[in-house]
Design a protein around this nucleic acid. Structure first.
Length: 579
DNA sequence: TCGCCTTTGAAGGAT
DNA sequence: ATCCTTCAAAGGCGA
Protein backbone atom coordinates (compact mmCIF):
# COMPACT_ATOMS: atom_id res chain seq x y z
CA UNK A 1 0.00 0.00 0.00
CA UNK A 2 2.65 2.43 0.70
CA UNK A 3 4.03 2.65 -2.65
CA UNK A 4 1.15 3.41 -4.72
CA UNK A 5 3.05 5.50 -7.00
CA UNK A 6 6.45 4.97 -5.89
CA UNK A 7 7.25 8.49 -6.51
CA UNK A 8 6.43 9.90 -3.24
CA UNK A 9 5.11 13.27 -3.71
CA UNK A 10 6.06 13.27 -7.25
CA UNK A 11 3.59 10.78 -8.17
CA UNK A 12 0.73 12.91 -7.51
CA UNK A 13 0.73 14.19 -10.86
CA UNK A 14 1.62 17.57 -9.79
CA UNK A 15 5.16 17.40 -10.59
CA UNK A 16 5.31 20.55 -12.35
CA UNK A 17 3.48 22.17 -9.65
CA UNK A 18 5.64 20.75 -7.12
CA UNK A 19 8.54 22.10 -8.88
CA UNK A 20 7.14 25.43 -8.93
CA UNK A 21 6.55 25.15 -5.30
CA UNK A 22 10.02 24.29 -4.72
CA UNK A 23 11.04 27.20 -6.61
CA UNK A 24 8.95 29.34 -4.57
CA UNK A 25 10.27 28.07 -1.44
CA UNK A 26 13.68 28.39 -2.72
CA UNK A 27 13.04 31.74 -3.87
CA UNK A 28 12.25 32.86 -0.49
CA UNK A 29 15.38 31.48 0.77
CA UNK A 30 17.14 33.04 -1.96
CA UNK A 31 15.65 36.27 -1.17
CA UNK A 32 17.02 36.09 2.18
CA UNK A 33 20.31 35.01 0.96
CA UNK A 34 20.71 37.46 -1.71
CA UNK A 35 19.30 40.44 -0.38
CA UNK A 36 18.40 41.48 -3.72
CA UNK A 37 15.40 42.22 -1.84
CA UNK A 38 15.11 45.57 -3.31
CA UNK A 39 13.22 44.30 -6.13
CA UNK A 40 11.59 41.68 -4.17
CA UNK A 41 10.46 44.14 -1.74
CA UNK A 42 8.94 46.20 -4.36
CA UNK A 43 7.26 43.25 -5.77
CA UNK A 44 6.06 42.30 -2.48
CA UNK A 45 4.83 45.62 -1.69
CA UNK A 46 2.89 45.87 -4.76
CA UNK A 47 1.77 42.37 -4.53
CA UNK A 48 0.68 42.77 -1.05
CA UNK A 49 -1.13 45.85 -1.77
CA UNK A 50 -2.64 44.77 -4.95
CA UNK A 51 -2.94 41.20 -4.39
CA UNK A 52 -6.47 41.25 -3.63
CA UNK A 53 -7.12 43.16 -6.68
CA UNK A 54 -5.20 40.98 -8.91
CA UNK A 55 -6.07 37.85 -7.33
CA UNK A 56 -6.46 35.66 -10.20
CA UNK A 57 -4.36 37.34 -12.70
CA UNK A 58 -1.51 38.18 -10.56
CA UNK A 59 -0.84 34.74 -9.58
CA UNK A 60 0.00 33.70 -13.00
CA UNK A 61 2.08 36.58 -13.72
CA UNK A 62 3.72 36.30 -10.46
CA UNK A 63 4.59 32.84 -11.06
CA UNK A 64 5.95 33.64 -14.34
CA UNK A 65 8.05 36.29 -12.89
CA UNK A 66 9.19 34.32 -10.08
CA UNK A 67 10.08 31.29 -11.85
CA UNK A 68 13.01 32.69 -13.55
CA UNK A 69 14.25 33.98 -10.36
CA UNK A 70 13.86 30.90 -8.54
CA UNK A 71 15.54 28.73 -10.98
CA UNK A 72 18.89 29.50 -9.69
CA UNK A 73 17.81 28.29 -6.41
CA UNK A 74 17.04 24.90 -7.49
CA UNK A 75 20.61 24.33 -6.91
CA UNK A 76 20.50 25.40 -3.39
CA UNK A 77 17.51 23.33 -2.95
CA UNK A 78 19.33 20.37 -4.18
CA UNK A 79 22.06 21.22 -1.87
CA UNK A 80 19.83 21.23 1.03
CA UNK A 81 18.55 17.96 -0.02
CA UNK A 82 22.01 16.79 -0.35
CA UNK A 83 22.66 17.84 3.12
CA UNK A 84 19.94 15.70 4.18
CA UNK A 85 20.89 12.75 2.29
CA UNK A 86 24.35 13.25 3.40
CA UNK A 87 23.33 13.40 6.95
CA UNK A 88 21.21 10.43 6.49
CA UNK A 89 23.87 8.54 4.82
CA UNK A 90 26.18 9.17 7.62
CA UNK A 91 23.78 8.12 10.13
CA UNK A 92 23.02 5.05 8.32
CA UNK A 93 26.59 4.34 7.76
CA UNK A 94 27.00 4.27 11.39
CA UNK A 95 29.51 6.91 10.95
CA UNK A 96 27.20 9.05 12.80
CA UNK A 97 28.57 12.26 11.72
CA UNK A 98 32.05 11.23 12.14
CA UNK A 99 33.35 13.66 9.77
CA UNK A 100 32.04 17.03 10.32
CA UNK A 101 31.63 18.33 6.93
CA UNK A 102 29.22 20.79 8.13
CA UNK A 103 30.85 22.56 10.86
CA UNK A 104 27.88 24.59 11.41
CA UNK A 105 26.06 21.93 13.20
CA UNK A 106 27.43 20.46 16.22
CA UNK A 107 26.38 17.22 17.42
CA UNK A 108 24.39 17.43 20.45
CA UNK A 109 23.47 15.13 23.13
CA UNK A 110 21.47 16.29 25.91
CA UNK A 111 22.82 15.58 29.22
CA UNK A 112 20.76 14.39 31.95
CA UNK A 113 18.46 17.08 32.83
CA UNK A 114 15.83 16.72 35.26
CA UNK A 115 12.75 18.60 35.19
CA UNK A 116 12.33 20.20 38.46
CA UNK A 117 8.79 20.87 37.84
CA UNK A 118 7.78 17.42 37.40
CA UNK A 119 7.38 16.10 40.76
CA UNK A 120 6.45 12.95 39.20
CA UNK A 121 9.82 11.57 38.63
CA UNK A 122 8.56 9.58 35.84
CA UNK A 123 8.94 12.38 33.51
CA UNK A 124 11.68 14.47 34.61
CA UNK A 125 14.67 13.40 32.68
CA UNK A 126 13.21 13.80 29.39
CA UNK A 127 12.28 17.29 29.99
CA UNK A 128 15.78 18.13 29.45
CA UNK A 129 15.58 17.10 25.98
CA UNK A 130 13.16 19.68 25.14
CA UNK A 131 15.48 22.02 23.55
CA UNK A 132 15.36 24.63 21.01
CA UNK A 133 15.45 24.94 17.42
CA UNK A 134 18.39 27.05 17.38
CA UNK A 135 20.27 24.25 18.70
CA UNK A 136 21.94 21.95 16.46
CA UNK A 137 19.91 19.10 15.48
CA UNK A 138 21.08 15.81 16.39
CA UNK A 139 19.62 12.71 15.31
CA UNK A 140 20.10 9.55 16.98
CA UNK A 141 20.86 6.88 14.60
CA UNK A 142 17.40 6.00 14.25
CA UNK A 143 17.21 2.39 14.19
CA UNK A 144 20.05 1.72 16.42
CA UNK A 145 18.66 3.41 19.32
CA UNK A 146 15.31 2.09 19.07
CA UNK A 147 13.79 -0.73 20.68
CA UNK A 148 12.22 -1.65 17.50
CA UNK A 149 15.15 -1.06 15.45
CA UNK A 150 13.95 -3.54 13.02
CA UNK A 151 10.82 -1.79 12.46
CA UNK A 152 10.97 0.38 9.45
CA UNK A 153 8.93 2.84 11.22
CA UNK A 154 10.27 3.81 14.46
CA UNK A 155 7.84 2.75 16.98
CA UNK A 156 8.42 5.76 18.98
CA UNK A 157 7.16 7.85 16.25
CA UNK A 158 4.07 6.02 16.19
CA UNK A 159 1.72 8.32 17.53
CA UNK A 160 -0.64 5.77 16.62
CA UNK A 161 0.14 6.55 13.16
CA UNK A 162 2.84 4.60 11.65
CA UNK A 163 5.44 6.46 9.91
CA UNK A 164 5.74 5.36 6.46
CA UNK A 165 8.88 6.14 4.83
CA UNK A 166 8.64 6.12 1.26
CA UNK A 167 11.35 4.19 -0.28
CA UNK A 168 12.14 6.83 -2.71
CA UNK A 169 10.79 9.80 -1.15
CA UNK A 170 11.59 9.70 2.42
CA UNK A 171 10.54 12.63 4.27
CA UNK A 172 13.60 14.45 5.20
CA UNK A 173 12.58 14.79 8.72
CA UNK A 174 11.40 11.40 9.25
CA UNK A 175 14.66 9.74 9.52
CA UNK A 176 16.37 12.58 11.12
CA UNK A 177 13.81 13.45 13.53
CA UNK A 178 13.03 10.22 14.84
CA UNK A 179 12.54 10.66 18.30
CA UNK A 180 11.70 8.00 20.33
CA UNK A 181 9.60 8.06 23.21
CA UNK A 182 11.95 5.61 24.47
CA UNK A 183 14.81 7.86 24.20
CA UNK A 184 13.15 10.68 25.62
CA UNK A 185 11.19 8.69 27.83
CA UNK A 186 10.32 10.92 30.60
CA UNK A 187 11.17 8.27 32.92
CA UNK A 188 14.61 7.77 31.77
CA UNK A 189 16.84 8.43 34.63
CA UNK A 190 20.52 8.52 34.51
CA UNK A 191 21.73 5.08 34.11
CA UNK A 192 24.12 5.38 36.86
CA UNK A 193 21.34 6.26 39.11
CA UNK A 194 18.97 3.81 37.88
CA UNK A 195 19.22 1.22 35.26
CA UNK A 196 15.63 1.39 34.70
CA UNK A 197 13.67 3.53 32.50
CA UNK A 198 10.28 4.50 33.43
CA UNK A 199 7.63 4.12 30.98
CA UNK A 200 6.31 7.52 30.31
CA UNK A 201 2.81 6.48 30.48
CA UNK A 202 2.70 3.65 32.81
CA UNK A 203 5.44 4.90 34.94
CA UNK A 204 6.59 1.41 35.15
CA UNK A 205 10.26 1.04 35.15
CA UNK A 206 11.79 -0.95 32.48
CA UNK A 207 15.22 -1.96 31.65
CA UNK A 208 16.71 -0.04 28.87
CA UNK A 209 17.53 -1.97 25.89
CA UNK A 210 21.20 -2.06 25.20
CA UNK A 211 20.58 -0.69 21.85
CA UNK A 212 19.17 2.32 23.44
CA UNK A 213 22.35 3.11 25.06
CA UNK A 214 25.06 2.21 22.80
CA UNK A 215 24.19 4.25 19.85
CA UNK A 216 25.16 7.36 21.56
CA UNK A 217 28.52 6.43 22.66
CA UNK A 218 30.04 6.31 19.31
CA UNK A 219 29.91 9.95 19.24
CA UNK A 220 33.30 11.23 19.67
CA UNK A 221 33.67 14.36 21.61
CA UNK A 222 35.90 15.64 19.00
CA UNK A 223 33.26 15.39 16.48
CA UNK A 224 30.99 17.28 18.63
CA UNK A 225 30.56 20.76 17.65
CA UNK A 226 31.31 20.25 14.11
CA UNK A 227 28.53 18.23 12.92
CA UNK A 228 26.36 19.24 10.21
CA UNK A 229 22.94 20.10 11.11
CA UNK A 230 20.79 17.71 9.31
CA UNK A 231 18.07 20.19 9.21
CA UNK A 232 20.23 23.04 8.49
CA UNK A 233 18.28 23.91 5.52
CA UNK A 234 15.43 24.21 7.79
CA UNK A 235 17.14 26.77 9.73
CA UNK A 236 18.68 29.04 7.33
CA UNK A 237 20.00 31.29 9.88
CA UNK A 238 20.26 29.56 13.05
CA UNK A 239 21.79 26.74 11.27
CA UNK A 240 24.83 28.78 10.92
CA UNK A 241 25.31 29.06 14.52
CA UNK A 242 27.79 26.90 16.01
CA UNK A 243 27.37 25.70 19.40
CA UNK A 244 30.22 24.38 21.21
CA UNK A 245 29.04 21.73 23.37
CA UNK A 246 30.82 20.73 26.39
CA UNK A 247 32.28 17.39 25.81
CA UNK A 248 30.97 16.29 29.06
CA UNK A 249 27.55 16.82 27.85
CA UNK A 250 28.01 14.43 25.12
CA UNK A 251 29.64 11.85 27.05
CA UNK A 252 26.68 11.42 29.02
CA UNK A 253 25.85 7.83 28.77
CA UNK A 254 22.18 8.18 28.67
CA UNK A 255 20.39 7.45 25.59
CA UNK A 256 17.64 9.60 26.70
CA UNK A 257 19.99 12.41 26.57
CA UNK A 258 20.97 11.99 23.10
CA UNK A 259 19.41 14.54 21.00
CA UNK A 260 18.02 13.59 17.79
CA UNK A 261 17.00 15.78 15.03
CA UNK A 262 13.55 16.18 16.16
CA UNK A 263 14.65 17.17 19.48
CA UNK A 264 17.09 19.53 18.28
CA UNK A 265 14.53 21.11 16.23
CA UNK A 266 12.31 21.36 19.11
CA UNK A 267 14.98 22.37 21.24
CA UNK A 268 16.31 24.93 19.09
CA UNK A 269 13.57 27.31 19.15
CA UNK A 270 12.96 27.80 22.69
CA UNK A 271 16.30 27.96 24.11
CA UNK A 272 17.94 31.16 23.89
CA UNK A 273 21.35 31.40 22.46
CA UNK A 274 22.51 31.71 25.94
CA UNK A 275 21.85 28.18 26.30
CA UNK A 276 24.05 27.44 23.53
CA UNK A 277 27.22 28.17 25.23
CA UNK A 278 26.43 27.46 28.70
CA UNK A 279 28.98 26.37 31.08
CA UNK A 280 29.36 22.72 31.02
CA UNK A 281 27.89 22.32 34.34
CA UNK A 282 24.82 24.05 33.32
CA UNK A 283 24.13 21.44 30.88
CA UNK A 284 25.33 18.45 32.53
CA UNK A 285 24.71 19.12 36.08
CA UNK A 286 21.94 21.48 36.29
CA UNK A 287 20.37 20.24 33.26
CA UNK A 288 18.70 21.99 30.52
CA UNK A 289 15.49 23.47 31.48
CA UNK A 290 12.66 22.73 29.36
CA UNK A 291 12.05 25.67 27.21
CA UNK A 292 8.46 25.31 27.71
CA UNK A 293 8.80 25.89 31.30
CA UNK A 294 8.62 29.36 32.39
CA UNK A 295 8.73 30.51 35.82
CA UNK A 296 5.65 32.35 36.64
CA UNK A 297 7.65 34.95 38.27
CA UNK A 298 9.58 35.58 35.23
CA UNK A 299 6.84 36.58 33.03
CA UNK A 300 7.40 34.41 30.16
CA UNK A 301 10.52 35.49 28.72
CA UNK A 302 11.99 32.53 27.10
CA UNK A 303 15.37 33.82 26.46
CA UNK A 304 17.97 33.11 28.89
CA UNK A 305 15.85 33.96 31.75
CA UNK A 306 13.89 30.92 31.70
CA UNK A 307 16.98 29.04 32.20
CA UNK A 308 17.64 30.20 35.59
CA UNK A 309 14.34 29.42 37.03
CA UNK A 310 14.38 25.92 36.03
CA UNK A 311 17.94 25.57 36.92
CA UNK A 312 17.32 26.87 40.30
CA UNK A 313 14.52 24.61 40.71
CA UNK A 314 16.66 21.82 39.64
CA UNK A 315 19.25 22.69 42.09
CA UNK A 316 16.93 22.44 44.89
CA UNK A 317 16.85 18.75 45.34
CA UNK A 318 13.35 18.92 46.39
CA UNK A 319 11.05 20.78 44.22
CA UNK A 320 8.64 20.68 46.97
CA UNK A 321 5.59 22.56 47.67
CA UNK A 322 6.96 25.64 46.27
CA UNK A 323 6.72 24.13 42.97
CA UNK A 324 3.15 23.69 43.54
CA UNK A 325 2.71 27.22 44.48
CA UNK A 326 4.85 28.53 41.82
CA UNK A 327 3.62 26.09 39.43
CA UNK A 328 5.89 26.60 36.56
CA UNK A 329 4.35 27.83 33.49
CA UNK A 330 4.62 25.21 30.92
CA UNK A 331 4.23 26.71 27.60
CA UNK A 332 2.38 25.27 24.80
CA UNK A 333 4.38 23.50 22.28
CA UNK A 334 4.95 25.53 19.24
CA UNK A 335 2.94 24.77 16.26
CA UNK A 336 4.28 24.54 12.81
CA UNK A 337 3.80 28.12 12.04
CA UNK A 338 5.37 29.24 15.23
CA UNK A 339 8.36 27.17 14.53
CA UNK A 340 8.55 28.67 11.17
CA UNK A 341 8.22 32.08 12.58
CA UNK A 342 11.01 31.57 14.92
CA UNK A 343 13.24 30.60 12.19
CA UNK A 344 12.29 33.11 9.70
CA UNK A 345 11.62 36.11 11.71
CA UNK A 346 15.14 37.26 11.78
CA UNK A 347 15.38 36.76 8.14
CA UNK A 348 12.39 38.81 7.43
CA UNK A 349 13.49 41.45 9.76
CA UNK A 350 16.78 41.56 8.03
CA UNK A 351 15.17 41.89 4.71
CA UNK A 352 12.90 44.56 5.73
CA UNK A 353 13.23 47.37 7.98
CA UNK A 354 10.18 46.36 9.73
CA UNK A 355 10.50 45.72 13.32
CA UNK A 356 7.06 45.40 14.47
CA UNK A 357 6.17 41.91 15.07
CA UNK A 358 2.68 42.41 13.94
CA UNK A 359 3.89 43.41 10.55
CA UNK A 360 6.53 40.80 10.48
CA UNK A 361 4.04 38.25 11.36
CA UNK A 362 1.85 39.22 8.56
CA UNK A 363 4.66 38.74 6.23
CA UNK A 364 5.54 35.53 7.78
CA UNK A 365 2.03 34.43 7.46
CA UNK A 366 2.15 35.08 3.83
CA UNK A 367 5.38 33.39 3.43
CA UNK A 368 4.11 30.52 5.28
CA UNK A 369 1.46 30.06 2.76
CA UNK A 370 3.90 30.42 0.03
CA UNK A 371 6.01 27.66 1.31
CA UNK A 372 5.99 24.54 -0.59
CA UNK A 373 4.23 21.69 0.91
CA UNK A 374 7.40 20.02 1.59
CA UNK A 375 8.65 22.90 3.47
CA UNK A 376 5.55 23.26 5.42
CA UNK A 377 5.54 19.62 6.03
CA UNK A 378 8.85 19.93 7.68
CA UNK A 379 7.45 22.31 10.13
CA UNK A 380 4.39 20.32 10.69
CA UNK A 381 6.56 17.44 11.39
CA UNK A 382 8.64 19.39 13.77
CA UNK A 383 5.60 20.67 15.45
CA UNK A 384 4.25 17.27 15.75
CA UNK A 385 7.41 16.12 17.32
CA UNK A 386 7.36 18.95 19.63
CA UNK A 387 3.90 18.21 20.72
CA UNK A 388 4.77 14.67 21.11
CA UNK A 389 7.74 15.42 23.16
CA UNK A 390 5.87 17.92 25.11
CA UNK A 391 3.20 15.48 25.91
CA UNK A 392 5.78 13.06 27.02
CA UNK A 393 7.45 15.55 29.18
CA UNK A 394 4.30 16.87 30.60
CA UNK A 395 1.77 14.17 30.39
CA UNK A 396 -0.64 15.87 32.60
CA UNK A 397 -0.28 19.20 31.06
CA UNK A 398 -3.13 20.71 29.29
CA UNK A 399 -3.24 23.73 27.16
CA UNK A 400 -5.99 24.77 29.37
CA UNK A 401 -3.57 25.08 32.16
CA UNK A 402 -2.21 28.18 30.67
CA UNK A 403 -5.45 29.84 30.26
CA UNK A 404 -5.59 33.01 32.05
CA UNK A 405 -1.94 33.03 32.70
CA UNK A 406 -1.30 35.26 29.93
CA UNK A 407 -2.25 38.69 30.75
CA UNK A 408 -5.57 39.05 29.41
CA UNK A 409 -4.81 38.36 25.95
CA UNK A 410 -8.23 38.93 24.76
CA UNK A 411 -9.56 42.23 24.26
CA UNK A 412 -13.02 42.43 25.39
CA UNK A 413 -14.23 44.16 22.42
CA UNK A 414 -14.29 41.04 20.51
CA UNK A 415 -17.31 39.72 22.09
CA UNK A 416 -18.71 43.10 22.19
CA UNK A 417 -17.82 44.03 18.77
CA UNK A 418 -20.69 44.31 16.52
CA UNK A 419 -20.97 43.79 12.91
CA UNK A 420 -20.62 47.40 12.33
CA UNK A 421 -17.31 47.31 13.87
CA UNK A 422 -16.10 44.87 11.44
CA UNK A 423 -16.24 47.16 8.61
CA UNK A 424 -14.48 49.82 10.41
CA UNK A 425 -11.88 47.66 11.70
CA UNK A 426 -11.23 45.85 8.62
CA UNK A 427 -10.71 48.96 6.71
CA UNK A 428 -8.34 50.22 9.09
CA UNK A 429 -6.50 47.06 9.47
CA UNK A 430 -5.86 46.35 5.96
CA UNK A 431 -2.26 46.67 5.30
CA UNK A 432 -2.05 48.58 8.33
CA UNK A 433 0.89 46.71 9.40
CA UNK A 434 2.53 46.63 6.15
CA UNK A 435 3.57 50.06 5.42
CA UNK A 436 4.31 50.33 1.83
CA UNK A 437 7.87 50.95 2.47
CA UNK A 438 8.30 48.08 4.55
CA UNK A 439 6.40 45.53 2.86
CA UNK A 440 8.77 42.91 2.25
CA UNK A 441 6.94 39.86 1.89
CA UNK A 442 8.11 37.51 -0.60
CA UNK A 443 6.35 37.82 -3.82
CA UNK A 444 6.06 34.22 -3.99
CA UNK A 445 3.65 34.33 -1.30
CA UNK A 446 0.75 34.32 -3.44
CA UNK A 447 0.77 30.75 -4.03
CA UNK A 448 -1.53 28.68 -2.28
CA UNK A 449 -0.13 26.49 0.04
CA UNK A 450 -1.91 24.04 1.80
CA UNK A 451 -5.48 24.11 1.57
CA UNK A 452 -5.80 21.52 3.95
CA UNK A 453 -2.83 21.95 5.86
CA UNK A 454 -3.41 22.77 9.32
CA UNK A 455 -6.52 21.14 9.64
CA UNK A 456 -4.67 18.25 8.69
CA UNK A 457 -1.17 18.70 9.34
CA UNK A 458 -1.13 15.49 7.81
CA UNK A 459 -2.15 17.02 4.71
CA UNK A 460 0.71 19.20 5.03
CA UNK A 461 2.86 16.35 5.64
CA UNK A 462 1.41 14.44 2.99
CA UNK A 463 1.78 17.42 1.04
CA UNK A 464 5.22 17.02 -0.03
CA UNK A 465 3.94 14.39 -2.05
CA UNK A 466 0.60 15.71 -2.13
CA UNK A 467 -0.49 17.62 -5.01
CA UNK A 468 0.44 21.05 -4.67
CA UNK A 469 -2.34 23.34 -4.57
CA UNK A 470 -3.84 23.21 -7.83
CA UNK A 471 -3.67 26.03 -10.14
CA UNK A 472 -6.76 27.45 -8.92
CA UNK A 473 -5.44 27.33 -5.50
CA UNK A 474 -2.14 28.60 -6.35
CA UNK A 475 -3.54 31.26 -8.31
CA UNK A 476 -5.26 32.60 -5.38
CA UNK A 477 -3.00 34.95 -3.79
CA UNK A 478 -3.08 35.25 -0.20
CA UNK A 479 -4.13 38.44 0.95
CA UNK A 480 -2.97 40.32 3.71
CA UNK A 481 -6.19 40.46 4.96
CA UNK A 482 -7.15 42.11 7.76
CA UNK A 483 -8.77 40.46 10.32
CA UNK A 484 -12.17 41.74 10.04
CA UNK A 485 -12.65 41.75 13.59
CA UNK A 486 -10.45 41.51 16.41
CA UNK A 487 -9.74 37.98 16.57
CA UNK A 488 -12.48 36.74 14.60
CA UNK A 489 -11.59 33.59 13.03
CA UNK A 490 -12.40 33.11 9.53
CA UNK A 491 -12.04 29.79 8.16
CA UNK A 492 -12.81 27.89 5.20
CA UNK A 493 -15.48 25.61 5.84
CA UNK A 494 -14.28 22.42 4.64
CA UNK A 495 -16.69 19.73 4.42
CA UNK A 496 -14.66 17.52 6.45
CA UNK A 497 -13.29 19.69 9.03
CA UNK A 498 -10.88 22.08 8.47
CA UNK A 499 -8.64 22.83 11.03
CA UNK A 500 -9.96 22.71 14.30
CA UNK A 501 -10.89 26.07 13.97
CA UNK A 502 -13.34 27.30 11.80
CA UNK A 503 -15.42 29.62 10.29
CA UNK A 504 -17.07 31.94 12.37
CA UNK A 505 -19.53 34.53 12.44
CA UNK A 506 -17.14 37.11 11.52
CA UNK A 507 -16.49 35.72 8.22
CA UNK A 508 -19.55 37.14 6.93
CA UNK A 509 -18.77 40.45 8.18
CA UNK A 510 -15.66 40.77 6.39
CA UNK A 511 -16.71 39.33 3.23
CA UNK A 512 -19.63 41.36 2.75
CA UNK A 513 -18.59 44.26 4.42
CA UNK A 514 -15.78 46.05 4.27
CA UNK A 515 -12.72 44.52 3.54
CA UNK A 516 -11.31 46.78 1.08
CA UNK A 517 -9.43 44.15 -0.48
CA UNK A 518 -10.69 40.87 0.13
CA UNK A 519 -8.64 38.23 -1.16
CA UNK A 520 -9.36 34.72 -1.04
CA UNK A 521 -7.10 33.03 1.16
CA UNK A 522 -7.34 29.88 -0.53
CA UNK A 523 -4.87 27.54 0.55
CA UNK A 524 -4.50 29.19 3.71
CA UNK A 525 -4.82 26.69 6.17
CA UNK A 526 -7.03 27.47 8.80
CA UNK A 527 -6.41 30.93 8.67
CA UNK A 528 -8.41 33.04 10.80
CA UNK A 529 -8.10 36.00 8.80
CA UNK A 530 -9.95 35.23 5.80
CA UNK A 531 -13.32 35.99 4.96
CA UNK A 532 -14.54 34.06 2.12
CA UNK A 533 -15.31 30.60 2.75
CA UNK A 534 -13.99 28.07 0.53
CA UNK A 535 -15.90 25.02 0.07
CA UNK A 536 -14.16 22.09 -1.14
CA UNK A 537 -15.45 19.05 -2.68
CA UNK A 538 -13.30 16.84 -0.68
CA UNK A 539 -13.26 16.26 2.92
CA UNK A 540 -9.72 16.39 3.86
CA UNK A 541 -10.36 14.94 7.06
CA UNK A 542 -11.24 11.78 5.63
CA UNK A 543 -7.93 11.75 4.08
CA UNK A 544 -5.94 12.61 7.04
CA UNK A 545 -6.47 12.01 10.55
CA UNK A 546 -4.27 14.03 12.64
CA UNK A 547 -1.17 13.19 11.09
CA UNK A 548 1.66 11.97 12.76
CA UNK A 549 3.77 10.79 10.15
CA UNK A 550 5.28 12.09 7.11
CA UNK A 551 3.32 11.84 4.06
CA UNK A 552 2.57 8.37 3.46
CA UNK A 553 1.97 7.08 0.08
CA UNK A 554 -1.45 6.40 1.20
CA UNK A 555 -2.05 9.94 1.93
CA UNK A 556 -0.36 10.91 -1.12
CA UNK A 557 -2.62 8.81 -3.09
CA UNK A 558 -5.56 10.20 -1.38
CA UNK A 559 -4.35 13.61 -1.97
CA UNK A 560 -3.69 12.75 -5.42
CA UNK A 561 -7.20 11.97 -6.07
CA UNK A 562 -8.09 14.95 -4.19
CA UNK A 563 -5.89 16.92 -6.31
CA UNK A 564 -7.40 15.67 -9.42
CA UNK A 565 -10.71 16.50 -8.15
CA UNK A 566 -9.60 19.86 -7.43
CA UNK A 567 -8.41 20.54 -10.78
CA UNK A 568 -11.53 19.48 -12.32
CA UNK A 569 -13.58 21.28 -9.87
CA UNK A 570 -12.66 24.75 -9.27
CA UNK A 571 -13.01 25.90 -5.84
CA UNK A 572 -16.18 27.39 -5.06
CA UNK A 573 -16.13 30.40 -3.03
CA UNK A 574 -18.94 30.84 -0.82
CA UNK A 575 -19.30 33.62 1.40
CA UNK A 576 -20.94 32.64 4.43
CA UNK A 577 -24.00 34.62 4.73
CA UNK A 578 -23.83 36.68 7.64
CA UNK A 579 -25.94 35.08 10.02
C1' DT B 1 4.89 48.64 32.87
C1' DC B 2 1.63 46.22 30.53
C1' DG B 3 -1.27 44.88 26.92
C1' DC B 4 -2.15 45.16 21.99
C1' DC B 5 -1.11 44.01 17.48
C1' DT B 6 -0.48 40.12 14.03
C1' DT B 7 0.12 35.50 12.17
C1' DT B 8 -1.17 30.08 12.07
C1' DG B 9 -2.00 26.02 14.46
C1' DA B 10 -3.40 23.20 18.30
C1' DA B 11 -6.11 22.12 22.13
C1' DG B 12 -10.05 21.83 24.73
C1' DG B 13 -14.35 23.51 26.51
C1' DA B 14 -18.92 24.71 24.97
C1' DT B 15 -22.74 24.10 22.09
C1' DA C 1 -19.48 17.22 15.17
C1' DT C 2 -18.80 21.79 15.09
C1' DC C 3 -17.88 26.21 17.12
C1' DC C 4 -15.31 29.24 19.86
C1' DT C 5 -11.63 30.72 22.74
C1' DT C 6 -7.04 30.82 24.32
C1' DC C 7 -2.25 30.49 23.86
C1' DA C 8 2.17 29.81 21.70
C1' DA C 9 6.54 33.90 19.66
C1' DA C 10 8.00 38.45 19.05
C1' DG C 11 8.94 43.32 19.44
C1' DG C 12 7.38 47.94 18.50
C1' DC C 13 3.93 50.89 20.07
C1' DG C 14 0.50 53.27 22.83
C1' DA C 15 -1.75 54.06 27.11
Amino acid sequence: MPQLNGGGGDDLGANDEMISFKDEGEQEEKISENVSAERDLDDVKSSLVNESENNSSSSDSEQAERRPQTRPDSESYEKTRDYFSEALRRQQDGGFFKSPHYPGYPFLMIPDLTNPYLSNGSLSPSARTYLQMKWPLLDVPGSAALKDSRSPTPGHLSNKVPVVQHAHHVHPLTPLITYSNEHFSPGTPPSHLSPEILDPKTGIPRTPHPSELSPYYPLSPGAVGSIAHPLGWLMPQQGQHMYSIPPGGFRHPYPALAMNASMSSLVSSRFSPHMVTPPPHSLHQTGIPHPAIVSPAIKQEPSGDNISPSMHARKSPVPPKKEEDKKPHIKKPLNAFMLYMKEMRAKVVAECTLKESAAINQILGRRWHSLSREEQAKYYELARKERQLHSQLYPGWSARDNYGKRKKRKRENKPDSKPEDFSIRSKKQCVQYLPSEKMCDSPASSHGSMLDSPATPSAALASPAAPAATHSEQAQPLSLTTKPEGRMHHHFSLPGKASGSTSSSSSSSSSSSSQPTISIPIGTSGSHSTTPILTRPIPFTSLHPPMLSPPSPFHQAALHSHHALFQSQPLSLVTKPTE
